[in-house]
């Protein structure tokens, strides 16, 4: 396999951990520096969006099909965009990566070995930022700001509780346990997500500069 000149950066964390805000700020910074950078979001591929929406709306999904439909979506994005961009020498920023599947699908009872094999074709990120915070803090941010919880988001499909808020709490708690284990297994870079936003961003940028030679990604001509 030929060497890949790009760099792959992923952010992971619970809903309400602030990871999307942080990767947005990282993206803005890199653009400001004139770097070749590309941003990609979990669950956003056009081709399979329809099926995902249908399955979620009609609550047709089992743990296995839930997992597979997300893997399909990811594979489409990975092979069409992420990998070519990496080969083309871009910094690729991913808001959620395969670890989201490992955590969520793991909670849903999917076999960890099966999941890892399923995503076996995927490159490991050069940096995986894990925005860690206490469960109660994450729950507080979500339940305060956005009380309309969705069925699968709250893990209602696995029957933890008939109450959607209680189900969400329990589900997120289990997701956090999985993330904390994955952090060791895959060597995540842990960021304290209880810090204030600019403080976190300073940490993110400092680590980025330590690990990645930014000069290599500067575009010759500013866009």
């Amino acid at each position: 396999m030929d060497a890949i000149p790009g760099k792959l950066i992923a952010v992971e964390g619970l809903d309400g951990s602030g990871k999307s805000t942080q990767i947005h700020l990282l993206h803005q910074w890199l653009r400001g520096l004139g770097c070749k950078v590309f941003f990609s979001e979990w669950n956003s591929s056009e081709m399979v969006k329809g099926a995902t929406r249908k399955g979620k709306k009609k609550q047709l999904l089992t743990p296995t099909t839930f997992s597979l439909i997300h893997a399909t979506d990811f594979a489409d994005r990975y092979e069409r965009q992420i990998l070519p961009m990496l080969k083309g020498g871009y910094i690729v920023l991913c808001d959620r990566y395969m670890f989201t599947a490992f955590a969520r699908d793991g909670v849903r009872g999917c076999d960890p070995a099966w999941l890892r094999e399923l995503y076996g074709f995927v490159r490991k990120p050069d940096i995986t930022y894990y925005f860690r915070l206490p469960l109660e803090t994450a729950l507080g941010r979500i339940l305060e700001g956005r009380p309309q919880l969705k069925f699968f988001e709250a893990g209602m499909d696995i029957g933890l509780s008939a109450d959607i808020f209680e189900s969400f709490r329990l589900f997120q708690g289990k997701v956090k346990e999985h993330y904390d284990r994955l952090a060791d297994e895959y060597g995540f870079t842990v960021v304290d997500a209880t810090l204030r936003i600019p403080e976190q961003q300073a940490v993110v940028r400092r680590i980025f500069q330590e690990r990645i030679d930014l000069a290599r990604f500067r575009q010759r001509v500013q866009q």
Partner: peptide, 21 residues
Amino acid sequence: VLSPRTMSLFYATDFYDQLEN
């Protein structure tokens, strides 16, 4: 327009949906 791997995961989704449901 889908890559072989995407197609194959799409088929797998279809298969397991029918298997389980």
